[in-house]
Amino acid sequence: MTIASERPDAILFDWDNTLVDSWLTIHAALVETFTQMDHEPWTLSETKDRVRQSLRDSFPGLFGDRWEEAAAIFYSAFERLHIENLVPMPQAGDMLERVQKVVPVLGVVSNKTGKYLRQEAQHLDWQCFFHELIGAGDASRDKPNAAPVDLFRKNNGLGKDSRIWYVGDSDIDMETAQNSGCIPVLIHIESANLDQIGANLPEITLSDCEELAGLVETL
């Protein structure tokens, strides 16, 4: 764990594979999409390595002019699967309950489509923890662009001088933090692909949700 010296004014979280384990659902929906679009499906390992951007940013590169057709297939599969397969990351709910007692503002900025993000939070009964959940399509641009974080700041009274942690599990989360003036916090360090982090180094690294809660409580 990297030691932090000051408690944040706010913590923003990534969602998929930071607070909930989404890989099997994302992979299954992608396999259906690739198969129906006559593409070779990715393996689960390839899905974990390659899924970073939002659908509207990634599908045009994968499917060209037919990307909207592919998006419709993906969303149909995802809507069928995502709630029944939803699994919180270990200790995530307990961490949120503990952290909200000492940090005044919590939120989510995710590349999951906004309506699905909020459906999942409601299903887990977690919406009470967050001031706002911003997903793909809710802002003018998606992560790693700063637009969704800027929207959260604007909607929730956070100035540019506010001390905000952005907590995520991947390189694009660290890039999002850097682009938006947040402190980058890399969680689930044992399963993170450190080769992809590049120049966007985290300031704080944590093993799991329990360690995050313990750190915040000691500041």
Rank of each mutant, 00 (worst) to 15 (best):
V167G: 05
R56G: 02
F78D: 07
G181Q: 12
I3W: 00
P90M: 05
L158Q: 08
A77T: 07
Y75Q: 09
L219V: 09
E132Q: 14
L19S: 03
A92P: 05
L19I: 08
L62C: 03
F63H: 06
K101P: 05
L194P: 04
R52L: 10
Q122D: 13
G214E: 10
F34Q: 13
E6V: 11
T218N: 11
I26K: 02
D171Q: 14
A199R: 04
M174Y: 13
P148W: 13
Q122K: 12
R56N: 14
M95E: 00
D161C: 05
A71M: 13
T113C: 04
L219W: 07
S45H: 10
L30H: 12
V99M: 10
L201M: 08
K154D: 07
A71L: 14
V216L: 11
A92F: 04
F78Y: 15
V20F: 12
N85S: 15
F34H: 15
S180W: 10
Q100P: 01
L212P: 06
F59L: 14
I187Q: 09
F34P: 01
G64A: 12
L24A: 14
L86Y: 11
P144H: 01
L106S: 00
L24D: 15
S110D: 05
I134A: 01
G214I: 02
L206N: 09
H82T: 06
R141Y: 05
G107N: 02
K160A: 15
C128P: 00
D142T: 03
Y75K: 09
S5P: 00
L96D: 00
E79H: 13
H39R: 12
R66K: 13
H188Q: 10
E211P: 07
V31T: 11
K115T: 09
E211A: 15
T205H: 03
S54K: 09
V99E: 08
T35Y: 03
D65T: 11
D169S: 08
V51R: 04
E217R: 02
Q122W: 01
D142E: 05
D169M: 04
F152N: 08
Y75N: 13
I189S: 13
S207L: 09
H131G: 00
E46R: 13
T176H: 07
A199K: 08
D94E: 14
L186H: 10
P88G: 01
E40C: 09
E46A: 10
M37I: 07
P41A: 03
P41K: 01
M95P: 06
T113P: 10
H188F: 08
V105E: 00
V216S: 03
I3D: 06
W15N: 04
G114Q: 11
N200P: 00
L62R: 11
W23I: 15
N155A: 06
F34W: 11
R163D: 14
V109D: 05
G107C: 02
D9K: 01
Q100W: 00
I26W: 05
H188L: 07
A71E: 14
D171H: 15
Y75A: 11
D125T: 05
E84T: 14
A121Y: 06
H39Q: 14
N200A: 13
E97V: 02
D21P: 02
L201F: 01
P184S: 11
